[in-house]
């Protein structure tokens, strides 16, 4: 009787210890992330005592080391957005259609082979993709399309599409694959063809998962640094065509931070660029969260 009581006490204590332990771990990671955000804002906000927010975001000229310096990141913002948009235009159709093929059309054996290969693409280091863009794609674009330089918006978008493709494909495939058999069987039983079932039943049922995949892929593209640093060209101007060089925000931060004097205006401006970038990815992730809640299927077909 007594030992049983003791055992119960010990178990309770252990439960408590585990609960506290997990709480501490969770707290540590959340605190670290919060502190990083606080640091980002602390190091970025001082620039706005020199430049107004409006001039910073809508200023067309980025000459951070001139005297007097100009800190306008409109060209960088537009570069980031266009690169992401073009990359998405390439990777979303490819990714989602590949996912549909893998989940619905192809045989189980092909799926077993192809899916790991697609996921393996995600393991390619970005610097390798960047190098590929630099030495293979850039000369190709110059020779075939007659672009003045192969290091341009299109090249960067293509490489980013490669990078976000595995994310989009793999997550959408999971979503599509998890659509319950009952739904599909019901559709087929009602006389719908395979294609009609895919288009009218499977895709709508998994749309929340697909949207999440798309947005996660896009936020990977907008935050990617190495690839755009290597292949986007790095000209801080508003692009006039697909083949103009651009300078997305992450590339600018990575290239200049090393040589910007500590706590100088330039340093603050780079952190402020980081804030803008952070806000963009934050918005992307919030939209993804929102969509996955809004279109969440009640019942079997949820991701």
């Amino acid at each position: 009787m007594k030992t049983g009581y003791k055992k119960g006490k010990a178990r309770q204590r252990r439960e408590l210890a585990i609960r506290v332990g997990f709480f501490c771990v969770a707290l540590a990671s959340i605190t670290t992330l919060t502190l990083i955000v606080v640091f980002l804002f602390m190091e970025g906000l001082p620039i706005f005592s020199k430049v107004s927010v409006q001039d910073f975001i809508f200023g067309k000229y980025w000459y951070p080391t001139d005297d007097p310096a100009e800190f306008g990141i409109l060209a960088l913002i537009i570069a980031s957005l266009t690169v992401t948009a073009v990359a998405s235009a390439i990777s979303i159709p490819l990714g989602v259609m590949t996912a549909l093929y893998l989940a619905e059309v192809c045989s189980a054996r092909i799926r077993e082979w192809v899916k790991p290969i697609v996921e393996l693409l995600a393991a390619l280091p970005s610097v390798v993709i960047g190098f590929f863009g630099m030495v293979v794609v850039a000369p190709f674009l110059q020779d075939i399309f007659g672009a003045a330089t192969g290091l341009n918006l299109f090249n960067a978008s293509l490489m980013l599409a490669f990078m976000s493709l595995p994310t989009i494909c793999s997550i959408s495939e999971d979503a599509i694959f998890s659509v319950s058999k009952e739904l599909k069987e019901a559709s087929l039983a009602l006389g719908a063809t395979h294609w009609e079932t895919i288009w009218r039943v499977t895709v709508p049922a998994s749309i929340s998962g697909i949207s999440t995949a798309v947005i996660l892929g896009m936020s990977r593209a907008i935050g990617e640094t190495m690839v755009v640093l290597m292949v986007a060209g790095g000209a801080a101007m508003i692009p006039g065509s697909l083949f103009d060089p651009v300078r997305p925000m992450p590339a600018s931060i990575a290239a200049e931070m090393a040589e910007a004097p500590f706590r100088d205006d330039h340093y603050y401006a780079l952190f402020a660029t980081g804030i803008v970038l952070f806000l963009f990815t934050l918005i992307f992730n919030m939209v993804a969260e929102n969509i996955s809640h809004k279109y969440r299927q009640v019942g079997a077909a949820t991701l």
Partner: peptide, 22 residues
């Protein structure tokens, strides 16, 4: 603003050697 900005001497060599217009 249309100038391509590279981060190192090596990157400039790489970019110039790959582009006959550069």
């Amino acid at each position: 603003p249309g100038a391509l900005l590279q981060a190192s001497n090596g990157a400039v060599v790489q970019a110039v050697s790959n582009n006959k217009n550069a």
